[in-house]
């Protein structure tokens, strides 16, 4: 049953216009970054050395600022909207346990993030190459990598971000389950994530800030600092596990007055 529920969720995801709008926004952002560099030089852009193979890594930090908005919108649509509109009944009046429904939603969120990350890497490679050419080597954090190393590093760092993004999504799921309507779910989630940025001010709290992790988790992977990686993974796993259990209890106990 889980597989069938997941199939349904993935089908709904690919039929949702929002996914394609988010993809378009990411592509336009990459194009604007390249355009402004070409138009005005590096002072107008985050690009230091222009080449296509380096662009996805250059823009990896900025992906977080989009995800802070995209994740709440997607989760609110996937959960709060279903509860409010009553489409939740299409699943819950079938032989489906509530916990299976929740797990299918979590898999859907994961698939959504994978699709967006894969698309952004592909789009940034294409846009970067069209704007600057592919280039000789990948440049990241003042280090040069061969083309193969660069592609591998890009994939490794970009997809490592699935962990903080998923942790963020799981926190947003709790908000979405509590919110009475889709606007409240999106507003509260974005508000919560914006407020969480202030944890970054206190150095000792920084590693525990989900927003900090969303911006910089890949850097600990890049530096291959085992202690830092372990600490970050434990923090994110904590967010994931605690959020999952809270969501599971909420969904199990909730009365659906649809």
């Amino acid at each position: 049953m889980m597989l069938r529920l997941i199939q349904n969720e993935l089908y709904k995801m690919v039929r949702l216009k929002k996914l394609y709008i988010f993809m378009a926004i990411l592509a336009v952002h990459a194009w604007l970054t390249a355009y402004f560099y070409n138009a005005g030089g590096e002072w107008k852009s985050v690009i230091v050395v222009p080449n296509g193979q380096s662009l996805p890594l250059t823009l990896l930090n900025s992906m977080a600022q989009f995800m802070i908005v995209f994740i709440p919108i997607y989760v609110a649509d996937m959960i709060t909207s279903e509860v409010n509109s009553g489409t939740l009944k299409l699943s819950l009046l079938c032989p489906v346990r509530r916990i299976e429904w929740l797990c299918a939603k979590i898999v859907s969120l994961f698939a959504f993030l994978v699709v967006l990350l894969a698309f952004s890497i592909a789009a940034e490679y294409v846009i970067g190459t069209l704007a600057f050419g592919w280039g000789e080597q990948t440049i990241y954090a003042d280090t040069l990598y061969s083309q193969t190393e660069g592609v591998w590093l890009t994939l490794r760092l970009a997809f490592s971000m699935l962990l903080p993004y998923m942790a963020c999504g799981m926190i947003v799921i709790i908000v979405a389950l509590s919110a009475t309507n889709i606007s409240a779910a999106i507003g509260l989630s974005i508000g919560l994530l914006t407020a969480a940025q202030y944890l970054n001010i206190v150095d000792t709290l920084k590693p525990y800030s989900i927003v900090n992790q969303m911006y910089f988790f890949h850097e600990s992977i890049h530096q291959a600092n085992i202690a830092a990686i372990l600490q970050n993974v434990v923090v994110l796993a904590g967010y994931l596990i605690v959020s999952y259990f809270i969501s599971a209890i909420m969904i199990k106990k909730r009365d659906f007055i649809l």
């Binding site: 949702l16 216009k17 489409t87 009944k89 299409l90 009046l93 649809l258």
Partner: peptide, 9 residues
């Protein structure tokens, strides 16, 4: 139950 609800899209 109550009103029938479906995915409009």
């Amino acid at each position: 139950v109550e009103n029938p609800a479906f995915y409009g899209y």
